[in-house]
Design a protein around this nucleic acid. Structure first.
Lengths: 108, 108
DNA sequence: CTATTTAGTAAGTATTAACTTACGGTTAGT
DNA sequence: ACTAACCGTAAGTTAATACTTACTAAATAG
């Protein structure tokens, strides 16, 4: 059994696709039904449904059923978690860089 | 002519691949030559070279030639830019969420 | 009850992108 | 000059995944 994939891994994968980013961009402004998300995008509605599933699985968006409509919106918890993860991610990378720079200094 | 792809777009694409994330993870700790990056990874060295090109194109890493070795390391400017971009990215998403929550309040 | 709207899923196709092998080029050492 | 180590690129293959069409189901309107 391959070990489980973390949410941050899923989020990276999810936002790696341009169409999914476009979808997330739309939802970043306001909640939307699937038809409204698909409208304007260069792919079919079922394709959008599939992308929404991936984004939902990564906890970047959440669903809100309303009649026959499925309203999607950004997911606060998931986004906060991702932001925290990335803050550390970049910080560690930058402190590594700082260390390298210091090593370089010594050589001069 | 399709319009140019922004660096943030490239960075999203670059980090969307698990192998590239693994490579970036390695470099996050210390600069490494290509052989050393490939060592331990489940793909061939040329594959690693190709991934490095993508990461470099996204300005997430930079190269530093040293004899026959090409030493790669994290790219400060690129990372700072991406961090700034994402800060705004998440902030806007979260403020959209806040707006939604307020709308919900009014309905109750 | 029927028709309409909305949307998820299944199955298959097509496209993308990751990967491998083979090759060539550069640098350093002997 | 020859050899060895390191690495990028080209070409082709394989594998992943994005996409479409067809279908089904649920909810609402008339």
């Amino acid at each position: 059994m391959g070990h489980a994939i973390s949410n941050s891994e899923k989020a990276f994968n999810a936002l790696g696709d341009p169409t999914r980013r476009a979808i997330f961009e739309k939802l970043r402004t306001t909640p939307l039904a699937v038809v409204d998300i698909a409208n304007g995008l260069p792919v079919s509605r079922p394709a959008v449904s599939q992308h929404l599933k991936v984004l939902r699985d990564a906890k970047l968006i959440s669903i809100n059923q309303q009649g026959t409509k499925n309203i999607y919106q950004v997911n606060r918890e998931g986004i906060l978690a991702m932001r925290n993860y990335l803050d550390k991610f970049w910080d560690e990378a930058l402190s590594a860089f700082k260390l390298i720079a210091e090593q370089e200094e010594k050589k001069l």
